[in-house]
C-alpha cells in the first residue's frame, strides 16, 4: 500500500545567492520557513512543485520537504536537515539565516 501523504512545503535554493527559499501561499518565495505554505493535499503539492521547477531563472533544485503545522498554524520542518536549512551552519551563529532571526 502506498504511504499516506504527509504535509509538505516547497523549497529550493535561490539561483543568485544559493540561499534556501520556500514557496509562500501567494506563490512567491520567502527566505523564511515560517512563511511557507504548508501543502496538505498531495495533488496541490505536486502542482506547486511542478510550477516551482519551471522557474529556472529564480531557483535551483526545487523539492517537497516534510513539515508539520505548529500550534500557531505556521509550518515547522520535520527532518534535522531541513531544520538546519532554516538556520545556517551551527559553527558560525552569525552566518546564514540565523544571523537575522
Amino acid at each position: 500500500m502506498a504511504r499516506a501523504f504527509t504535509p509538505k512545503v516547497v523549497t529550493a535554493n535561490a539561483l543568485l545567492e544559493g540561499d534556501v527559499i520556500y514557496m509562500k501561499p501567494n506563490g512567491e518565495w520567502s527566505r523564511l520557513h515560517s512563511e511557507a505554505k504548508l501543502f496538505e493535499d498531495e495533488t496541490e503539492a505536486n502542482d506547486a512543485l511542478a510550477h516551482a521547477s519551471e522557474q529556472a531563472s529564480l531557483l535551483v533544485g526545487a523539492y517537497l520537504a516534510d513539515a508539520v503545522k505548529r500550534k500557531d498554524g505556521k509550518p515547522e520542518p520535520v527532518h534535522f536537515r531541513e531544520v538546519f536549512r532554516t538556520k545556517g551552519p551551527s559553527n558560525y551563529p552569525d552566518h546564514g539565516k540565523q544571523a537575522e532571526l
Binding site: G18, G61, F84
Partner: peptide
Amino acid sequence: GLYLQLHAY
C-alpha cells in the same frame, strides 16, 4: 569548482 551546497554556493 562551483558547487551548490546546503545554504549557499
